[in-house]
Computed example of a mutant assay.
Amino acid sequence: MARVVRDKRTGKTKGYGFVSFSNPTDLAAAIKEMNGKYVGNRPIKLRKSNWKEMTDVEAQERQKNHVQRKPKMPKKSILHK
């Protein structure tokens, strides 16, 4: 499961995101293979989160129930005279 962080007002990406892996060996492989590689003109910096650990069962349930949402676009304001 992956999530790209966007600016709420503009909808543009902030340049970072979060990825969760159901298998810990996939995390190790991603760090080994992708850390320092370039996407466009920016290097990827990978690290394991120190956020509260979730059990594998909880992570799998979240992935099953995850619904892909479209990013909210800012409402256009109307100027009145």
Rank of each mutant, 00 (worst) to 15 (best):
1 M>D: 02
3 R>D: 14
4 V>K: 03
4 V>P: 01
4 V>G: 04
4 V>D: 04
7 D>F: 10
8 K>H: 10
10 T>V: 07
12 K>M: 15
12 K>I: 13
14 K>S: 11
14 K>I: 14
15 G>Y: 11
16 Y>G: 03
19 V>F: 03
19 V>S: 00
20 S>A: 15
20 S>F: 10
22 S>T: 09
22 S>E: 15
24 P>E: 03
25 T>L: 15
26 D>S: 02
27 L>N: 01
27 L>E: 03
27 L>W: 01
29 A>R: 15
29 A>N: 14
30 A>G: 00
30 A>T: 05
32 K>E: 11
32 K>N: 05
33 E>D: 07
33 E>A: 11
35 N>L: 13
37 K>D: 05
37 K>H: 03
37 K>T: 11
38 Y>E: 11
38 Y>F: 12
41 N>M: 12
43 P>K: 07
43 P>E: 01
44 I>N: 07
45 K>C: 05
46 L>H: 01
47 R>P: 03
47 R>I: 03
48 K>D: 10
49 S>L: 04
49 S>Q: 01
53 E>A: 14
53 E>M: 08
53 E>F: 09
56 D>L: 08
57 V>P: 00
58 E>H: 02
58 E>Y: 00
61 E>A: 15
62 R>M: 02
63 Q>L: 09
63 Q>D: 11
64 K>A: 12
64 K>H: 06
67 V>C: 10
67 V>T: 13
68 Q>D: 10
69 R>V: 01
69 R>G: 04
71 P>S: 08
73 M>Q: 13
75 K>D: 01
75 K>A: 08
75 K>R: 08
76 K>H: 08
77 S>G: 02
79 L>S: 09
80 H>Q: 12
80 H>V: 08
